[in-house]
């Protein structure tokens, strides 16, 4: 899952950055409104965490423009203002959720998970596929009622594929969701993770579309 973090405060930004990465997200961190606008134009994210008080371009403007371009990526705003009008303004500008500073890091992660889940049209917090149960909040995976341990990135790849069942995800897109700009991308990393997942679970779970990418089939009986 790739998340854009827009926060001008170095200390707070660093904290959220680290926290989200620990939770398995690929995080891109920008510190002003202008850069945020460019990042949103050029990249695809699963979610955006947006501080409202930003230099160069206010957070609300960034959000409004983003929505005007028809983008539906979930956006969670961070604000130091706890007035009801600030919250209404943020939600009306197109935010999906808000948090008032100072907030709990775990709550931020939980809200982010909920946003991503809802964005994929799920109401259940757990991803279920045949005899596979993936819990993004608890970071646990059960296969045939057995706990299976996956690394942070393996987990992210599997979650991404499960979120997009029936759709082919390109290698690049999977790669993008794993690494922020600052991360060093290992070559063939995605292939390696897929290989690990297949070894730990069923080798037929993930289908390779040669030259394109990977996909997990829709559950049988599920209407297209």
């Amino acid at each position: 899952m790739r998340v854009l973090l827009v926060e001008d405060d170095v200390l707070l930004g660093d904290g959220i950055h680290t926290g989200l990465r620990n939770d398995g997200y690929a995080v891109d961190w920008v510190k002003d409104g202008e850069t945020a606008r460019r990042a949103l134009q050029d990249n695809e994210f699963h979610a955006v965490i947006l501080d409202l008080g930003l230099p160069k371009l206010p957070g609300l403007t960034v959000l409004k423009e983003f929505r005007e371009q028809g983008n539906s990526t979930p956006v969670l705003i961070l604000t130091a203002q706890d007035g009801i009008n600030d919250r209404i303004g943020g939600l009306d500008a197109g935010a999906d959720d808000y948090l008032v500073k100072p907030f709990d890091l775990e709550e931020l992660c939980a809200r982010l998970r909920a946003l991503i889940r809802r964005a994929h049209g799920r109401t259940d917090s757990v991803l279920q596929h045949d005899n596979l149960v993936l819990d993004p909040a608890a970071h646990t995976l059960q296969y045939n009622n057995q706990n299976v341990t996956l690394s942070r990135r393996e987990f992210a790849v599997l979650q991404n594929l499960l979120e997009n069942r029936g759709r082919v995800l390109s290698r690049e897109r999977l790669e993008q969701s794993l690494y922020g700009w600052s991360d060093e991308v290992e070559s063939n990393a995605v292939e390696v993770y897929i290989h690990h997942i297949r070894k730990k679970l069923d080798s037929k779970l993930i289908r390779t579309i040669r030259g394109v990418g990977y996909m997990i089939d829709k559950p049988q009986g599920d209407a297209e």
Binding site: L11, L12, D14, T18, G53, A80, K101, P102, D104
Partner: peptide
């Protein structure tokens, strides 16, 4: 008060990170 919230949010975040 609002200006103090941001450093406080940073403090809280890092305290939680340190604990975890």
């Amino acid at each position: 008060a609002h200006e103090l919230r941001t450093p406080l949010a940073g403090l809280r975040t890092h305290a939680q990170l340190a604990l975890a």
